[in-house]
Design a binder for these strands. Structure first.
Lengths: 196, 196
DNA sequence: TTGCTGTCCTAACGTTCGTTAGTTACTTTT
DNA sequence: AAAAGTAACTAACGAACGTTAGGACAGCAA
């Protein structure tokens, strides 16, 4: 009877959530079964329920954690007194680093949040919408101050948020370029464009 | 006994595939059941099998069609004698228009291709990889000819492909901006950047 | 008319799913 | 050492899944 190994920083539940994020990322939420998860954790499926309430709780924990990290970051950035373009740079770099370091959670949250059920679904949607509006607000401020081109701010937000999620493909073929280079390339292209 | 309505241009199978794309986009491939699909089509689940071989065939038809459209387009663009930046602009605009007009198929192909099974999975992966390499090749040519900044070409491809997929969110809130404006905004931001 | 083909139906199959019940074994507390 | 609590097990539940079998009705060709 092999127990789930814990350490100082993570409970058994933490470990299950971590493995779940990995599995959900790999196979998708619906396609990943509790029996799959149990096998990865090293335990029978029923045993998982000593630590979690349901499969959907796993998704909800992952999505909430990601949403909170981004909300906290934009709180921090908005409070600073900086040119808009630098605020955007900071947010962009945060997104990129999250995608480099915690990408499993971020990808699951991005791709599987539709499978949340209320009230978590409504909450998530609201948090997401609010975040994008605040991001767009920073861009619009930059346009007013003539630091940024006259473009449609929501479109710019869309581009940046989705561009970053492309880092997933980079993860799979981590060969030529380093994380630092990737970050600089992305920020350059998005802020200054491709053309010379 | 209500039959599936057909017209001159689309067979019963075409109609099922179309409704399937819509459903897969909405709920995801795994979460969409054949009974769901049957209800949308207006028929019992078993009746679908008079027109299709399996659920997975539906996904494979959708993904293949999308992949072929992009492959054909890059064939066309590569053959032209134009500055790299214009070739990229053409591809970008094609991606944007596909996302505006055939977005259901494109989104399903983008998001659900992992659920394909061999040999379709391998084929799809290969076609995808090849497309990206050819796209990166155009960028690298532009860098050599000094039309484009010295950046990592695969990263630029990643950004552009994923940025375009953000148009899905735009579909849900089609309020302020027109399709034409959206296209111009996206091309401007990606080719010329945000900063003034 | 008769027979053929295409399209639908109902019924049911075997699997897999998330989850619960009840029990046993290990770990910690007293 | 006894008691209490935690974490694992086996077994099984009902529901939902993709799919198949077999039959009924329609429209068309002979």
């Amino acid at each position: 009877m092999g127990r789930i190994k814990t350490d100082q920083h993570s409970s058994r539940k933490d470990i299950i959530v971590e493995k779940a994020a990995n599995l959900f990322k790999e196979k998708g939420y619906k396609a990943a079964s509790m029996r799959d998860l149990a096998e990865v954790v090293g335990v029978e499926a029923a045993s998982l329920y000593n630590h979690i309430k349901s499969k959907s709780e796993l998704l909800h924990v992952i999505c909430l954690a990601v949403a909170n990290r981004f909300t906290n970051k934009i709180d921090e950035v908005e409070a600073e007194d900086l040119p808009a373009i630098q605020k955007i740079g900071k947010l962009l770099r945060f997104h990129i680093r999250e995608m480099l370091n915690n990408y499993e959670d971020v990808i699951v949250s991005d791709r599987e949040w539709k499978h949340l059920s209320d009230p978590y679904l409504s909450n998530f949607r609201h948090q997401r919408r609010t975040y994008r509006k605040r991001f767009a607000g920073i861009i619009e401020e930059g346009i007013r101050r003539k630091e940024i081109k006259k473009i449609d701010a929501p479109t710019a937000v869309l581009i940046m948020l989705h561009a970053v999620s492309g880092i997933e493909s980079f993860h799979r073929s981590r060969q030529k370029i380093s994380a630092k280079e990737l970050e600089e390339n992305m920020v350059t292209i998005l802020l200054n464009g491709l053309a010379k």
